[in-house]
């Protein structure tokens, strides 16, 4: 389709011109890095001497905070269209809804991936430095995979929020649903159902397998990411259907 590039450009300008979206994206980098470094710098000898201590995982501790910012970014970027009916103007300019949706998700996803990779690289470098003698290099088994995986994870969570925002058409609704769903649910249930089960297939659990040096659940790093991709694809598909089928 000849008109994809202009629409991409337009979607890029949309994000750049709204301060809250830029701030949310910056918060992904800042909060993930800050909490990761803080964690690495304050680990006690007791913590680090435990059998399962994973120095690579420790440098992504802040991801739980960073993914909240990613959810905010993804949901704001899509739901912003539905406040005050701005989508009327957007769809008048780009009446092919599939093109509109694809362009928006492409820009949101690529930005989240770029910021996510920058975030994970920064976390790894600063986190390992903060660990001092316990710190490892990028050559450590699984380290490079974790760094790339963390960036991919942030991009996928952003798209998950974007897809849900296309369904719910409200950023607060997406945040109100997704933040407890991703953070609290698996946190609470994780301790209850020890030894795997359906909890491991929740999007955050599955997607974070890629960060672990020695995943012990039913999913390995790649199948875990695959499960998260399925969650994201489902959200995007339902959101896309809503956009394509309904009146604007």
């Amino acid at each position: 389709m000849s008109s994809f590039a202009p629409v991409l450009h337009s979607e890029w300008l949309k994000i750049r011109s709204v301060r809250s979206q830029c701030l949310a994206l910056a918060a992904v980098l800042v909060s993930t890095t800050a909490f990761s470094v803080l964690m690495c710098a304050t680990l006690s000898a007791e913590d680090t001497s435990e059998a399962g201590f994973d120095p690579v995982r420790a440098s992504f501790f802040g991801l739980n905070f960073g993914q909240i910012a990613a959810i905010c970014f993804g949901s704001l970027a899509v739901a912003g269209e539905y406040r005050n009916g701005a989508v009327l103007v957007s769809l008048t300019a780009v009446p092919r809804r599939g093109l509109f949706y694809t362009a928006k998700l492409t820009v949101v996803g690529l930005l989240a991936l770029a910021v996510g990779l920058l975030t994970s690289a920064t976390c790894f470098v600063l986190g390992q430095a903060a660990l001092g003698d316990l710190g490892v290099g990028i050559g450590e088994p699984g380290a490079l995979r974790s760094v790339v995986g963390c960036g991919v994870y942030l991009a996928l969570i952003t798209l998950f929020a974007a897809g849900l925002a296309a369904v719910l058409r409200s950023a607060p609704a997406v945040m109100g649903f997704l933040i407890p769903f991703l953070l609290m649910l698996s946190f609470v249930l994780g301790d209850v159902s020890e030894g795997g089960g359906w909890v491991d297939f929740l999007p955050d659990r599955a997607g974070q397998q890629i960060l672990l040096q020695n995943p012990d659940g039913p999913l390995n790093p790649w199948t875990g990411t695959g499960v998260l991709v399925l969650w994201v694809a489902a959200a995007l598909w339902v959101g896309g259907r809503r956009l394509m089928r309904r009146d604007a």
């Binding site: 709204v18 005050n84 009327l88 103007v89």
Partner: peptide, 13 residues
């Protein structure tokens, strides 16, 4: 076309 003057993202210039 001008449909609804309110249809714009308020935080943009």
């Amino acid at each position: 076309a001008l449909l609804d003057a309110q249809a714009a993202v308020g935080s943009r210039t």
